[in-house]
Design a protein around this nucleic acid. Sequence first.
DNA 1: CTGCATCCGCAAGGATACTG
DNA 2: CAGTATCCTTGCGGATGCAG
Lengths: 110, 110
Amino acid sequence: MKNNKEIVHCFVDYGFKRIGGKYKGRILWVLKGGVLRYGELKRAIVGITPKMLTQTLRELEADELVHRKVYLEVPPKVEYALTTTGKELIPFIEQLRSWAKNQMEQKNIT
Amino acid sequence: MKNNKEIVHCFVDYGFKRIGGKYKGRILWVLKGGVLRYGELKRAIVGITPKMLTQTLRELEADELVHRKVYLEVPPKVEYALTTTGKELIPFIEQLRSWAKNQMEQKNIT
DNA sequence: CTGCATCCGCAAGGATACTG
DNA sequence: CAGTATCCTTGCGGATGCAG
């Protein structure tokens, strides 16, 4: 358990801290499609390293945005899914995505 | 002009990059109330240093989310305001803020 | 398959002093 | 008032290897 020395200045600050970081948004976004296994997530989030994937998932889990379900099998199997709280964030991300889409098209970015 | 080596993996990625960073969200949020001068912003964003304020404002300006208006007077006067594009993000931040508010109240965070 | 351990570089951010 | 300039610290994130 690391020290939670986070200083939140306002609600907006708190909110951004939950979905900030390099991959949190993308992970939540792909999980919107339903339950995914670790390997599936890794393939979905292009460019992420196992370390960052695990680390980010743990943070999301600590914030209760995703749920982690472990199957005691061989080979191991772990599934990740959005929690109720996590699902509440999807509409926002969708909105941001739509905004970004427009911006990129206007600026002719591939 | 710094090198734009940003690699965007998807729309969500792009969107988060516009509003990521430590202060972008908070600055956009306080600017929602209307035009503000540099010093007013500095007082509104508790804890920010002049360096970070200027730097972040420049980035928001480059992304055309805020507009910078300079008055050639003595003493100097500079006003910052949301652009049309910037205003489009406000609903998103507003919802995120509301979500964060609920979360914090549930978890009894001061 | 699903991770954890370790080392490391770099860029984001902070502190302080100074300027037109 | 509205920034610059400079230096310094932190920790995010990358790379690689190992483990149950």
